[in-house]
């Protein structure tokens, strides 16, 4: 079902996606992988959903335009780079792989993510990085260059989120409400000031320890490399860490035996 104007050469498949239905586009990607393509260049992307979903090979996908919801949902391996903005559900329940967005992301970024990395240059919407979890060497990472909206990193159970606030005007604090509500694992690092009244229940602010700094430095260095920024300048501002007050936030909710 590959279109005739799609060119596969040197294992690079270039597709003009304008007017292509998402189901057909994703089928082209799966067929392309089966035929040996290892890199995809998608041009004219206009809202096609689920790009990268159902791919387990370590292919790379460059997207020019605006991909639709659930980009990289349930993804397990590919690297995606978006030259534009991403919509809702970016990296939903993602298992491994990498997504780099040269723009903003919508709601639900990295929801229930279990592994892999997401880097967003700009801002993220509501409910970003919620219910991320980790297991052994699978540790999801999200770095957001700008700020996020409400319900940021709720129910966090594992992995790490770095919120850099680079899009905030000087002196303006992150304004997302209910940050980290129900957090019971993982680490949230925030650059710049936050208003403690915006924190969710059960979350406390801490200073960064030495290992925390190492993690932040490594993530920021990777972030800065993708977007051609100065890591040193980003790291020169203060960071705080959000931690769960308990790994058993709901342990005392119940009465004893019936």
């Amino acid at each position: 079902m590959l279109r005739e104007d799609s060119a596969l050469s040197d294992r690079v498949l270039s597709i003009d996606t304008s007017g292509v239905y998402y189901r057909d586009l994703n089928k082209m990607l799966r067929e392309g992988v089966a035929k040996g393509a290892r890199e995809f260049v998608l041009r004219g992307v206009t809202g096609q959903r689920y790009i990268g979903t159902g791919l387990v090979e370590r292919v790379s996908i460059k997207i020019f335009g605006t991909p639709g919801n659930d980009l990289g949902a349930f993804m397990d391996g590919p690297s995606i780079e978006v030259f534009g903005n991403a919509q809702d559900g970016l990296g939903n329940t993602m298992n491994s792989g990498k997504i780099v967005v040269h723009g903003n992301a919508g709601d639900l970024l990295g929801m229930a993510m279990r592994g892999g990395k997401i880097f967003v240059k700009g801002d993220a919407g509501c409910r970003s990085a919620i219910h991320m979890k980790e297991y052994r060497d699978m540790r999801p990472t999200v770095v957001i260059g700008g700020t996020a909206r409400d319900f940021f990193a709720e129910y966090m159970a594992g992995g790490e989120v770095v919120l850099l606030g680079l899009t905030l005007p000087p002196g303006v604090r992150h304004s997302c409400a209910f940050m980290g509500t129900g957090m019971h694992g993982g680490r949230i690092y925030i650059r710049g000031a936050i208003d403690p009244s915006k924190l969710g229940k059960g979350v406390i602010i801490q200073e960064l320890s030495e290992p925390d700094w190492e993690t932040v430095k490594a993530r920021v260095a990777e972030f800065a490399a993708y977007f051609d920024m100065d890591a040193g300048a980003i790291l020169s501002a203060p960071f705080v860490k959000l931690c769960p007050a308990s790994t058993r936030p709901y342990g005392v909710l119940y009465a004893g035996r019936n």
């Binding site: 297991y135 019971h184 058993r248 936030p249």
Partner: peptide, 10 residues
């Protein structure tokens, strides 16, 4: 469940 041992699974 792919979560650490001993943590609440919410």
């Amino acid at each position: 469940r792919m979560i650490p041992v001993g943590t609440d699974a919410l």
